[in-house]
């Protein structure tokens, strides 16, 4: 690794940090804009003006917004996420278990969807123009166009209601064996794989097709290389940048965009926690969940950018 790569990677990381600060600012002030006064809502019927004023002072709600932001951001940096308004538990404790559940679901989905998507994308590119390519293309466009609640509800109808193969709800805590694992994760994973694979397939196919049209691929063909060798040795290494980016974008969806799937299958993940937090006006919890989504997204995108930098031979 040389000096230039190092400085490029460092500057990319610095940009990530700056983005994070801006995002936290946006998250904080966006949640501030939620309608209703927190103290009044928390006190409910006991909301006398004195009690509301007292609670506001206790919760620092009467301080200027910028001071509260600094206090909150300082807490974030030192790992103190604050306490929940709704049930007075530390937010870190509330999130921990849920976050692991979400990661499990995301991990299992990635494990299935990435290899499937790459294989389909690359083979479609190799056989571009063929019947196989057209079938894959039509199916992926079809899947993109169907909303995920449709896929999820259809899966429940088919596998849980008619065939009765799988439970309709995914309760992650009841996993004791491999079969349990398969039964619990099957439907959410299938639904999510449908949702995230389509884009990866399209991007992979486009990136590989583009490199397959280059003169160096024709050169490889004229050297007598087999189609497998042409794709693996010549086309793929040069298509890596866009593919990694497409994968990162799709996977980031698994962290923040799974609200519908978690709700339909009643899966105890972090997205569902956030939806519940909105219902109870639990600002610190909402903010922390939002920050986790943003950080996850940022990490994936930054990672993809760094991989693209490293895979660029001109920087070697």
């Amino acid at each position: 690794m040389n000096h230039r790569i190092l400085s490029l990677v460092m500057s990319r990381l610095l940009i990530a940090v700056i983005t994070l600060v801006i995002v936290s600012f946006a998250v904080f002030f966006a949640t501030m804009m939620l309608p209703g006064d927190t103290a009044t809502i928390l006190l409910g019927q006991a909301a006398t003006p004195e009690a509301v004023a007292g609670l506001r002072t206790a919760m620092h709600l009467d301080e200027p917004a910028i001071i509260r932001f600094m206090r909150w951001f300082g807490g974030l940096v030192t790992g103190d996420l604050g306490t929940s308004y709704a049930n007075d538990m530390p937010i870190a404790d509330l999130i921990a278990g849920r976050f692991i559940n979400t990661l499990k679901l995301a991990g299992v989905t990635a494990l299935f969807s990435v290899p499937i998507a790459l294989t389909l994308g690359i083979t479609a590119a190799m056989m571009r123009g063929s019947l196989y390519d057209r079938v894959v293309t039509i199916l992926t466009i079809g899947v993109i166009s169907v909303p995920e609640f449709m896929v999820a509800t259809s899966a429940v109808l088919l596998f849980a209601v008619y065939l009765k193969w799988l439970p309709a709800l995914s309760i992650a805590n009841e996993v004791h064996s491999i079969t349990d694992l398969l039964r619990v994760y099957a439907m959410p994973v299938i639904t999510l794989t449908f949702v995230v694979s389509a884009q990866m397939i399209r991007m992979t196919r486009a990136a590989v097709v583009e490199t397959l049209n280059t003169p160096y691929v024709e050169m490889a063909l004229l050297k007598g290389a087999s189609p497998q060798r042409i794709v693996l040795k010549h086309a793929l290494p040069n298509a890596l940048g866009p593919i990694v980016n497409a994968v990162a974008l799709s996977l980031s969806y698994l962290l923040g965009g799974v609200i519908i799937v978690e709700t339909i299958f009643n899966y105890p993940g972090i997205a569902k926690l956030m939806v519940d937090a909105v219902a109870t006006r639990d600002l610190p919890l909402i903010q922390s969940c939002a920050m986790i989504f943003c950080v996850g997204y940022l990490i994936l995108i930054t990672l993809a950018d760094i991989l693209a930098i490293l895979s660029n031979p001109r920087l070697r």
Binding site: T214, P215, Y216, M219, L222, G224, K233, H234, P237, N238
Partner: peptide, 18 residues
């Protein structure tokens, strides 16, 4: 092995990643 090819633009005919 029996017939081989020298391209017009070698700059484009070499794979940049190898």
């Amino acid at each position: 092995t029996e017939v081989s090819y020298v391209p017009q633009s070698a700059a484009a005919a070499f794979n940049p990643a190898a």
